[in-house]
């Protein structure tokens, strides 16, 4: 196994593209190191991307934020303005592992491992985050939802690296939230995870909604029917019930050591309702602050 620590993303991409054997990107390493230790993967090349400046910074852009792929969740969650704008996305990332893990783990690593239960992904999906990918053929931009395919399998081609994720500006009366279900209070993998982002008009009618759903299918889902149940409503109980039913209906979970099909399906709807309520509260608070914080 070789270890490389390039200074530019182009160099990193070239290393990955030219490796004949198995190559792995090392950002936070909180998944990769576990896989290495257990013998699950035995790469020939590990490319550490933490010395690439564009991947380790948070930059304000068009009212939103561009977050480098190697920025740890702890650093992200110390960015007050980012947390104020996208509290749901930040909470999702903040729920990954322990304080210790937070110091290393990255949202993009979480995304690119393509685990269906990745805590930071439903929130990014709900926020319609866009990933910037650099590869042998240059740059491209892809919505986050289009990256995972199945556990450990993504749409990234050989040599491609996600450089950053862009979270657009939140609207004046917009709010997001992420809730997950775990048996303990910390340190578990999500049994169900729901990310919600909603926008309301001045009369309180929901004009836009996105619901991201984790741990209930082969990959994180965007539940359009759940969004439809909310749009046009004032998020009254009837709309929420309909949204919960749509969320549960979208679940295609499995029985495993973390939960049953029955449990995941039901709790997905329960959490979706709770998340919308939090997002609504945040949207209203944001509006009362004039669209800031």
């Amino acid at each position: 196994m070789r270890y490389e620590s390039p200074q530019t993303i182009e160099a990193a991409s070239a290393l990955l593209a030219s490796e004949a054997g198995l190559a792995r990107i090392l950002a936070g390493g909180t998944d990769l190191l576990v896989q290495l230790r257990s013998g699950m993967v035995e790469p020939d090349l590990v490319v550490d991307v933490k010395n690439i400046p564009t991947m380790t910074s948070i930059v304000e852009e068009n009212g939103g934020y561009r977050i480098g792929a190697a920025v740890s969740s702890a650093v992200m969650n110390e960015h007050a303005d980012l947390c104020a704008m996208w509290p749901g996305v930040m909470e999702g990332a903040d729920l990954i592992g322990s304080t210790q893990v937070q110091g290393r783990a990255t949202m993009v690593g979480n995304l690119c491992n393509c685990g269906p239960a990745a805590d930071s992904v439903p929130g990014m999906v709900a926020a319609n985050a866009i990933a910037t990918i650099v590869g042998p053929n240059g740059r491209r931009e892809v919505p986050v939802i289009d990256i995972p395919v199945a556990p450990g399998k993504s749409t990234l081609a050989k040599g491609e690296i996600v450089e950053s994720v862009f979270l657009p500006a939140q609207v004046k009366r917009g709010g997001d939230a992420y809730l997950r279900f775990i048996p303990r209070t910390e340190m578990d993998i999500a049994v169900v995870g729901v990310g919600v982002n909603i926008e309301l008009d001045d009369s309180g009618v929901c004009t836009h909604a996105r619901v991201g759903l984790g741990a209930v299918a082969i990959k994180v889902l965007l539940v359009e029917d759940a969004a439809k149940a909310l749009i046009g409503s004032k998020l009254d109980d009837a709309a929420l019930d309909k949204m919960a039913a749509a969320t549960s209906a979208a679940c295609k979970p499995i029985n495993d050591k973390r939960g049953t099909i029955e449990f995941r399906t039901k709790v997905a709807g329960v959490l979706a309702v709770r998340a919308v309520k939090i997002a609504l509260e945040r949207a209203n608070k944001r509006a009362s602050n004039g669209g800031e914080k």
């Binding site: 303990r184 340190m187 050591k257």
Partner: peptide
């Protein structure tokens, strides 16, 4: 009482041989 258990699959193999899924109480619980 609440969460710890040895979980075996149909194949007779232990499915949760680690602290991640053998859920011992943590301080925040």
């Amino acid at each position: 009482a609440l969460n710890e258990e040895y979980i075996y699959g149909e194949d007779g193999r232990l499915q949760n041989a680690g602290f991640l899924d053998y859920r011992m109480p943590v301080a925040s619980d």
